[in-house]
C-alpha cells in the first residue's frame, strides 16, 4: 500500500493543483495527465492543464470498512467526479453527511491530508472535494 517517496513527489503537481493535460488537437482533457492522446495519436498535441477543481458527482459509494490508514474516517464518501472540463477522477467528499449525497451534486476541490504513514512518517496532501456552496 505504501508508495515510495519519489512516486509521491512526482505526483505533487497533480495532487496539489489538479494539473493534468489537454490535447490541443481534439480538445480532450485528461486527469491524470497523459503523454499521448489516445484519440489523436501522433497528431495529438498534449499540454499541461490546470483544472478549475469544479465538477459534479458522477457516481459515489459510502465506505464503511476502511483500508489501513483510513479507519478514523468511516463512514466516508468516495466519488467519481466529472470535472467541468470533462475528465473524470476519483476523490473523497469531505465534511458531508453520507446520507445527503446525490449524483449530480456540484462539488469543488479542497486541499486536505490524504494519508499519514504513522506518527513518524510522511504526511501526504492533495485534492479532495466538498459540496459547492
Amino acid at each position: 500500500m505504501k508508495p515510495g517517496l519519489p512516486l509521491l513527489w512526482r505526483r505533487t503537481k497533480e495532487r496539489y493543483n489538479l494539473i493534468g493535460s489537454k490535447c490541443e488537437s481534439c480538445g480532450t482533457h485528461y486527469m491524470p495527465g497523459r503523454a499521448v492522446c489516445p484519440k489523436c495519436r501522433r497528431k495529438g498535441k498534449l499540454v499541461e492543464h490546470k483544472f478549475s477543481g469544479k465538477g459534479r458527482i458522477y457516481s459515489y459509494t459510502v465506505v464503511r470498512v476502511a483500508p489501513e490508514g483510513y479507519e478514523y474516517f468511516v463512514p466516508y464518501v468516495l466519488a467519481i467526479i466529472n470535472l467541468d472540463e470533462g475528465a473524470k477522477i476519483t476523490g473523497q467528499i469531505v465534511d458531508a453527511d453520507p446520507d445527503k449525497i446525490e449524483v449530480g451534486q456540484k462539488v469543488e476541490m479542497v486541499f486536505r491530508k490524504i494519508h499519514e504513514d504513522n506518527p513518524e512518517g510522511l504526511i501526504t496532501y492533495g485534492f479532495k472535494f466538498k459540496l459547492a456552496d
Partner: peptide
C-alpha cells in the same frame, strides 16, 4: 479541524 485538516491545509 476535520480529521484531514491541519495547519498546512
Amino acid at each position: 479541524p476535520g480529521l484531514d485538516e491541519d495547519a498546512a491545509t
